[in-house]
Design a protein around this nucleic acid. Sequence first.
DNA 1: CATTTAACTGAACATTCGTTCATTTGAAAA
DNA 2: TTTTCAAATGAACGAATGTTCAGTTAAATG
Lengths: 167, 167
Amino acid sequence: MRQIAHEVGVQAGALYRYTPDKQTLLFDLMRGHMDALLAARAAAAGGVAVFDTPLIRLDEFVRFHIRFHLERPDAVFVSYMELRNLTPENFAALEALRRDYEDQLEVILQSGVAAGEFGLTDTKITTLAIIAMLTGLTTWYREDGRLPLTQIERIYTGLVRGAVGVS
Amino acid sequence: MRQIAHEVGVQAGALYRYTPDKQTLLFDLMRGHMDALLAARAAAAGGVAVFDTPLIRLDEFVRFHIRFHLERPDAVFVSYMELRNLTPENFAALEALRRDYEDQLEVILQSGVAAGEFGLTDTKITTLAIIAMLTGLTTWYREDGRLPLTQIERIYTGLVRGAVGVS
DNA sequence: CATTTAACTGAACATTCGTTCATTTGAAAA
DNA sequence: TTTTCAAATGAACGAATGTTCAGTTAAATG
């Protein structure tokens, strides 16, 4: 708390005018991140996506996930590393939001399977595997790295297409 | 330290007969995990693997990674969540070991590409993506879950085959 | 038996932690 | 100008932290 206060240019005690305690501060931060994720996702998928093919929607999801996560590395880092420091209730609340997000990918996979365009065994596991693969990007991506972001997006969409057995 | 001592049935001070400090204890734990990973990998890949096709070696790597990580969830958890609490030197040492491991997968991918059996754009990124996908399994796998481990292994080998563009 | 030696205790240390609160500050309202 | 009031201070609290160490215990050694 003293460290946070210092970066904000204030004494530690002053923080308690804005949060009842440290746990709430952490939870609000993480829930804010998930809310932003779901809101951005809704905005991105809200347009004409319903009429697009499963493959187009899948590609769009991959690009969205990559962009969103790479744009806020700090929030992503906290949201993954501090999960264990949440109270059981707060953890459950966040897990529910995370599941909402995962479900959006799974729906795409299911529609792809239903349309006979994807060839995969299990939509639930494939969903989790894809998200883990995509989020892993945040641990090594550097802005001045070997490849530009557009190229990385192309590679990952290719990996995901292969994983879902697009024919 | 007091918590660790309690679980071992000893006073906190007694731990310092076995470790010079907390940082060293953490590092030894994590390095021990990586040493075990590399040793187990060497044992698994040491046999006839050299004569096998890239695809067979890839499948074997996937099964190995899954098995090894699911058998020691605590060590995996610590090794991923406590990286940020290592000194820069200790962190660098562990990163080197991790890279050794990653390289073993990348070699498989390279040989698959060279043999014309895999169709992928970038072996380095594909390596990291696959490992992130596989390791993500440890965050949700439960022994009494919906699917048996052998089935999960089959699904993941399928996902990886698709990702590397096996034809 | 006596002696050595290693393991462990338990208290203490200096910090650091999250949090509280009487007091001060300074701008807005009267 | 005086009053009001929210924002922030800074000191203090109790508890927890990693670590040290003189002293106790008990097994191994002579």
